[in-house]
């Protein structure tokens, strides 16, 4: 076989592959949003934070508001959220993200501002800031990731840890008689007049991911209306600290967390108001 023939055959083979592959720009139906950076995330395998970050980035890209959005990261596992989102961001002290977000929004009222907070940050150390930010009806979006545990510090009991649920500081299970009850902060803030939109979602399956994205999108869109605060809870998992595989943690979440923290809207704007 001459060299020339070989080259032609290889060329032919490549062309054949190219023809068969449907992976072309025309056929692309889903890829990560541009605002989500390529930096590999530090989260444990199967952690819901990654999906939540991506959804924020998708909404920012789809609304075309990357230049006008400022995010506030909390202290907790998502302390490094600013490493993954290609927007201006501020990293707040533990529990104070909503106060930080309040101030940014007050001095930049035309920008989109959101805080991203975990359950320890938002519902324990930052309870006062959360409630007062909601009650003042600041025109911003709070995204609340509730996985019922302190992930970053290694699995201690959170304000949202379920009764009987084990953690490193409730090793025999949360005893509500001595450790108190889990705090349904989302139900609590939904009562406040400053809160315009309040919903509880999850990112455990494709359907819930779509619903969570829609909720985040509404949270950004409502900022334009200056009607008040949007509060989006995402019930999530913590495979590492729940000591389960990602799939098992999702199943446990569906059976236990969703029973205590039922998914759905807690407060939706009046249609006429919209």
């Amino acid at each position: 076989m001459s060299e020339k023939t070989l080259v032609n055959e290889e060329q032919h083979f490549e062309e054949m592959i190219a023809e068969e592959s449907i992976c072309t720009t025309d056929n692309l139906v889903y890829e990560k949003p541009d605002t989500l950076l390529d930096t590999p995330m530090h989260y444990c395998p199967g952690c819901g934070h990654g999906v939540a970050h991506r959804l924020i980035a998708e909404v920012i890209d789809e609304l075309g508001i990357q230049e006008d959005t400022i995010g506030v990261a909390p202290v907790g596992c998502s302390v490094f959220a600013y490493n993954y989102l290609n927007i201006d961001m501020t990293e707040a002290a533990h529990g104070r993200a909503s106060a930080v977000a309040t101030a940014i929004k007050r001095v930049l009222p035309d920008k989109y501002v959101f805080s991203y907070q975990g359950d320890g940050d938002l519902a324990a150390i930052g309870t006062a800031e959360t409630i007062h930010t909601c009650n003042r009806g600041e025109n911003l979006l709070i995204i609340f990731i509730n996985n019922g545990i302190y992930g970053m510090t290694g699995g201690q009991m959170a304000p949202t840890t379920l009764p009987g649920m084990k953690s490193t500081t409730s090793p025999f299970g949360r005893d509500v008689a001595t450790m108190g009850n889990p705090l349904k902060i989302t139900e609590l803030v939904a009562q406040l007049p400053g809160v315009y939109y309040c919903t509880r979602t999850a990112v455990n399956n494709a359907g819930n991911v779509r619903r969570a994205k829609k909720a985040i999108q509404k949270g950004f869109e409502y900022q334009k209306l200056n009607k008040g605060l949007s509060f989006v809870e995402i019930v999530s998992n913590c495979p590492s600290n729940w000591k389960m595989t990602p799939l098992a943690s999702n199943k446990w979440m569906e059976e236990n967390m969703f029973a205590f923290y039922p998914l759905g809207d807690l407060k939706v704007p009046n249609d006429k108001e919209k």
Binding site: I22, C23, T24, D26, N27, L28, V29, Y30, E31, K32, P33, L36, P40, M41, Y43, P45, G46, C47, G48, H49, G50, V51, H53, R54, V203, N204, N205, A206, V209, R210
Partner: peptide, 25 residues
């Protein structure tokens, strides 16, 4: 089928999904 479910639940955002349209443009 290019339904995108895998990409939607992927925490790392590393799945690109392609779907061939029935009619070639």
């Amino acid at each position: 089928t290019g339904c995108t479910n895998c990409a939607l639940v992927c925490p790392e955002g590393i799945i690109k999904v392609y779907r061939q349209t029935t009619k070639k443009k």
